[in-house]
Design a binder for these strands. Structure first.
Lengths: 291, 291
DNA sequence: CATGGTATCTGACTTTAGTCAGACACTTCC
DNA sequence: GGAAGTGTCTGACTAAAGTCAGATACCATG
């Protein structure tokens, strides 16, 4: 059989099924059935809201109730009433529960580290995993406003600069570009938007304002593992809507013809070319859009 | 939290766990417990040898026996004695079993197709999946002798030519190169080795002989998704051992300095450079090794 | 404040998965 | 040919997972 798409996909499915099964096995080593371990993990990760966990793990209410009682009996969790709705309940880890949760985390993390360590090119493997994870859960990409100095934002900007350096024949040196002050990309003057899927930053865009009716769109970047999903378009639409919110009438941006996808996107979405409006050495095309 | 390696890995793990779970759910739709469905699928895929299936699915002999009886009772399989060992048994699908097996296959395949279809770049996604699958099961790469005209071999050669075309500034045209007759790479004159993991071809190498004491190593290729795992070295070691088997005393090969990894590998493994021994336009370095 | 809807709990189940010891027929090796 | 080992089957279990029909307490609405 030649390796057609479907059988390649299914080889992948077999490999990950084995891996997932092996992780489950290792979870059993802590003397607790898998169902209880999963609930404990969900509580440690998230809100502890019983209904939410139940929806996430797709558990019957009866089963859920019993599993919670089991964990409570072990002294790992404590149940509290929901502050706004006395029918609901919130589970919280006790110190012992936190220790047990950490032990499960360690199992997962060690497995991850071991697998990455024995691979010749961990960064390439992670990039592949990012792409697969994004493809498997494409609906989960969420946009949010963020401080441009947050770790996630810094990560995106770092990737953005690295990509510019690769794309420009002359390389790219941040210090030569007019690096906007982070304060210009924070409300009320501007904003900074992040696209994230399950915690992983996949893209960003900045809105740099000076308090006037004109602002600049900067730092539009989408991770290679998430390209083609329309994320850039979503980011641009979101940043325009934030700009309107801030009372901005005109948006500008500069870009480079070495980034043809970006240029095409701007043209498609109502931007028109204008003459150079700064003396930054890197851009060679300039756009404007009235809101 | 910045996206460190481990949390990227674990995002991937969450995404595939969800996907695996969803596929299991869809399998349940056929009114048969998962255990029985898995056994039926294993029988449809492979040999039907009970011991083999039991090892693959890690099932207790008692459980296995009951699951088989259940499938037999449904009229989906028939048990036959093993021709060489009367203790062992072989399971074979009945026509009804084949239909049921196909229904499960369709569920999996449709899922795969749907996911690939909604992705903007299916080939990139598949390459990522290949890399992940190979990383998750690195021990499973098996070398085997194959006909160079088999579909798997053709696939490898096609990838090999495409890669040469990318790597050479001048491009690469197979017809200009001295394309060996497939017959020269078949025993007794030569051989062709494939590296495969779970059915997916990951690499190849050819041994081209003319019946004399000198033969040529050709077409060494390793898939990008499996590089760095020492596969090229394994292929070269295997081809040398086949050559000894065939009574060949001296091996030669030609290559190009645009492929520095290959050149380094040859130097590391006991080959020494010799003068040009053909007038093929592409190679510019020539090696020899005595066995 | 009555009504319908919601979140969780309880008890009484069934099904599935997994374990273990022993039986049996066969193979392998001395 | 006998001893040790192997592959499968059987019966008797346990544990885990999942289902379902109330019960109970609470919320939202008119």
């Amino acid at each position: 059989m030649p390796p057609d798409s479907v059988s390649r996909f299914r080889r992948f499915a077999r490999a990950v099924t084995t891996e997932v099964g092996a992780l489950d096995q290792s979870f059993l080593g802590r003397g607790r059935p898998l169902g209880a371990a999963r609930v404990l993990n969900a509580i440690g990760q998230g809100t502890g809201d019983v209904a939410e966990i139940r929806a996430y793990l797709r558990l019957d209410s009866g089963l859920m109730s019993r599993l919670l009682r089991g964990l409570e009996g072990e002294g790992l969790i404590e149940m509290q009433p929901h502050p706004e709705d006395a029918r609901r309940r919130i589970a919280a880890l006790t110190p012992a529960g936190r220790r047990e949760f950490d032990a499960y985390e360690t199992l997962s993390n060690d497995r991850a580290r071991a697998l990455l360590a024995r691979h010749p090119d961990p960064e390439a493997l992670l990039a592949a995993m990012d792409m697969v994870a994004t493809a498997l859960s494409p609906d989960s990409v969420r946009l949010s406003e963020s401080d441009p100095r947050s770790p996630e934002a810094r990560y995106c900007l770092g990737e953005y600069y690295a990509e510019l350096a690769r794309r420009f024949d002359t390389g790219f040196d941040v210090s030569l570009s007019r690096d906007p002050e982070a304060g210009d990309m924070v409300r009320p003057r501007g904003s900074f938007l992040l696209a994230q899927s399950d915690g992983l930053p996949l893209g960003c865009v900045g809105l740099k304002g000076q308090g006037g009716a004109v602002a600049e769109v900067k730092r539009l970047w989408v991770s290679p593992s998430a390209r083609g999903l329309g994320l850039a378009r979503r980011l641009m639409a979101a940043v325009e809507s934030v700009a309107q919110d801030l009372g901005i009438a005109t948006l500008r941006l500069d870009t480079n013809s070495a980034l043809p996808e970006a240029v095409a996107l701007y043209r498609r979405s109502g931007w028109h070319e204008i003459p150079r409006f700064n003396d930054d050495p890197y851009p060679d095309i300039f756009f404007e859009k009235s809101l």
